[in-house]
């Protein structure tokens, strides 16, 4: 362990880049799997085969099979689609809402700001997971409900972040000069504030993507999100539980580790991105 770290520490700067590129590669593979799923899956992810139950990894099934004889590799690949798509939609929703709220609060200040702050405070009072659980309790489990719920839960976080940056940005002298010239809030925000925010926001968003992926997977694990036969990774872990009790860990661990690896990769890439983009600032 220390040997590996020592090697990495001692390596010249150029070779340390390989970690970043490895993580970028992992993310690329995940995205590629999601996009190319129907063409690269070795088996139909939903094809059950009672003769092939709980097989360990082997030449026919590289990652083994689950309780119904379904190939785990194919399920992971097809699950990439729903898992990643869910996280992206969740993030898009959260960003759109959060940026809107944050910018509005920063631009108008005064009572608008206070009102929005109170609303986001209420949302902060609910730990995100609980808020989504409440939405699920009302609207019943489902992928769409879970994604929308999580999007709403993350919006305040982004709103706060956006507001802080926007305040800083709007305090700059050039904004005042444009305001004097009569430029409207929306135009100013769109043309000047947003573009300057993007670098800082982007790195943060990438890390938030990983976080959102984990939260969504947790929801699916609890049975509140995607429903079978979806091969969403969180759901796969839940379905794998039946095997854990019998000592068969593959169906639960394979999707679990996949989630972990993708999240680590997004963390690394996100951090590096915010470093790089921040420097340019």
């Amino acid at each position: 362990m220390t040997a590996v770290a020592a090697v990495l520490t001692a390596a010249p700067r150029k070779r340390r880049e390989w970690v970043y590129f490895l993580c970028l590669g992992i993310l690329a593979v995940a995205v590629a799997a999601a996009v190319l799923a129907p063409w690269i899956m070795p088996y139909d992810p939903d094809a059950t085969s009672f003769d092939a139950i709980y097989l360990p990894p082997g030449p026919a099934h590289w990652l083994g099979t689950d309780q119904l004889g379904r190939d785990l590799l194919s399920r992971i690949i097809s699950g990439a689609r729903s898992t990643l798509l869910g996280s992206i939609v969740l993030l898009a929703l959260a960003t759109a809402l959060g940026v809107l709220i944050g910018l509005t609060a920063a631009w108008y200040r005064g009572w608008v700001d206070t009102l929005l702050a109170r609303i986001t405070d209420v949302m902060f009072a609910f730990p995100g997971l609980l808020f989504v659980i409440m939405i699920i309790a009302v609207f019943d489990s489902g992928t769409v409900t879970a994604v929308i719920g999580m999007g709403l839960a993350y919006a305040p976080v982004i709103a706060k972040f956006t507001r802080a940056i926007a305040l800083e940005e709007l305090a700059r002298p050039y904004v005042d000069s444009y305001r004097l010239q009569g430029a409207g809030g929306l135009e100013l925000s769109a043309r000047y504030v947003l573009p300057n925010m993007v670098p800082t926001l982007l790195g943060y968003l990438v890390v938030l993507f990983g976080d959102g992926l984990m939260s969504l997977a947790t929801l699916n694990f609890l049975g509140f999100g995607s429903q079978p036969p979806s091969s969403d990774w969180g759901l796969m872990v839940e379905e794998g539980r039946a095997g854990v009790i019998q000592g068969i860990l593959g169906p639960a661990l394979v999707p679990g580790l996949t989630i972990a690896i993708v999240v680590v990769a997004t963390n690394v890439v996100g951090v590096r991105l915010s470093d790089k983009l921040a420097v340019r600032r």
Binding site: A5, L8, V271
Partner: peptide, 19 residues
Amino acid sequence: MSTVSARRRLAAGAAVCAI
């Protein structure tokens, strides 16, 4: 966590835990 070494640590940790 904004230094270059962050990624090294992640990779090292990742390798160990994966094993």
